[in-house]
């Protein structure tokens, strides 16, 4: 099953590698690693979010191994999608393989398409789609949007992203 883990690593070389060992030992397949270097904690540690595919029963073992290695485990459990965002696509959405477009987001492990509405006015006319993407955090939303932007360029789709509430 897909699980996410929020860890805090010491800001010294080799810590990420150290944190990976318990995951390897317990046969966790890593889907994504987001290293929030810009969000250093007041304790001087660096938050890292792992999304992994692993047997849930091994989770406690992983946690205690991490703790014994000096890694702080802030949270570990099922993937929680805490951010979501609306996007509109315009173009030949079905002909350019909608399944693939969605899969490019879903396969990240940190984001997924959760809602989809499609309007097709005519065979040769561009169709329009509304979709909602949810992700495990703001950074992941940005990554998912940049994937979608890239897909849009490849498939000649107009990608209409939401305006952000705050300055970047």
């Amino acid at each position: 099953m897909r699980l996410s883990m929020d860890l805090e690593l010491q800001d010294i070389p080799g810590q990420l590698l150290l944190a990976l060992q318990p995951l390897k030992d317990n046969k966790a397949n890593i889907i994504s690693v987001v290293h929030h270097r810009e969000r250093k904690t007041p304790r001087g540690t660096i938050p890292v979010r792992f999304v992994v595919e692993m047997d849930r029963s091994k989770l406690d073992a992983v946690k205690s191994q991490l703790v014994s290695l000096g890694v702080t485990v802030v949270r570990a459990g099922e993937v929680r999608f805490i951010e979501d965002v609306a996007v509109v696509l315009v173009g030949h959405i079905l002909d350019s393989d909608l399944g693939d477009t969605i899969n490019r987001i879903d396969s990240t492990g940190y984001a997924e398409v959760m809602d989809l509405a499609l309007t097709m006015p005519g065979v040769n006319e561009p169709s329009s789609a509304y979709l909602r993407i949810r992700a495990t955090g703001k950074a992941e939303i940005h990554k998912a949007l940049s994937i979608l932007r890239q897909v849009g360029e490849e498939k000649k789709l107009l990608v209409i992203e939401p305006i952000e509430d705050e300055a970047a």
Partner: peptide
């Protein structure tokens, strides 16, 4: 120029 009325309606 690529924006459609359908996209506006969906939005």
């Amino acid at each position: 120029t690529g924006v459609t009325p359908e996209a506006l309606a969906l939005a």
